[in-house]
Design a protein around this nucleic acid. Structure first.
Length: 133
DNA sequence: CTGATGACGAGCG
DNA sequence: CCGCTCGCCATCA
């Protein structure tokens, strides 16, 4: 499952750490659902910016990057200042509905987060487990 | 090491 | 709801 690091020699060491976790997490987002940058960042322990930065660096086609949108439920613009139309097409192909404002209803299509088993399997402590006493 | 850069997010008017 | 500012922090020159 590390095929996206097919050329580690041409990639800086960082991609093997944070980016790999982000990509692996994105791969767990089921079809027909969407996750936000901040949500993913909260799981892997980084800011939403880093998640967006990681998505920009995705090259592996197996990573469902199109299921990652911003907190408003809209598709973030690329460096061009325009949203990637391909992303919307892919999501609509998974029965994800866009509202009149070009936004997805996160209450309906929002991802609930990774399973506990996934977190443990990836060596991540479940977030927000504040058992007082 | 220093400074600039972003597929972001929360606030504010 | 819309546009703008500021904080965020890994990455890059």
């Amino acid at each position: 499952m590390v095929a996206w690091l097919s050329a580690p020699e041409t990639v800086t060491a960082m991609t093997a750490g944070l980016y790999a976790r982000i990509y692996r997490l994105v791969c767990t987002v089921p079809r027909g659902q969407v996750a936000t940058y901040g949500q993913l960042g909260a799981v892997v322990g980084c800011s939403a910016r880093q998640v967006g930065y990681a998505m920009a660096a995705v090259t592996d086609v197996r990573v469902p990057w199109h299921r990652v949108i911003n907190s408003r439920g809209a598709i973030s613009t690329r460096s061009d200042g325009k949203p990637d139309t391909r992303q919307r097409e892919l999501l609509e192909g998974e029965a994800v509905v866009f509202g009149p404002a070009g936004c997805v209803d996160l209450a309906t299509f929002g991802w609930n987060g990774p399973d506990w088993d996934w977190l443990v399997a990836n060596g991540l402590e479940p977030p927000q487990i504040l058992d007082s006493d």
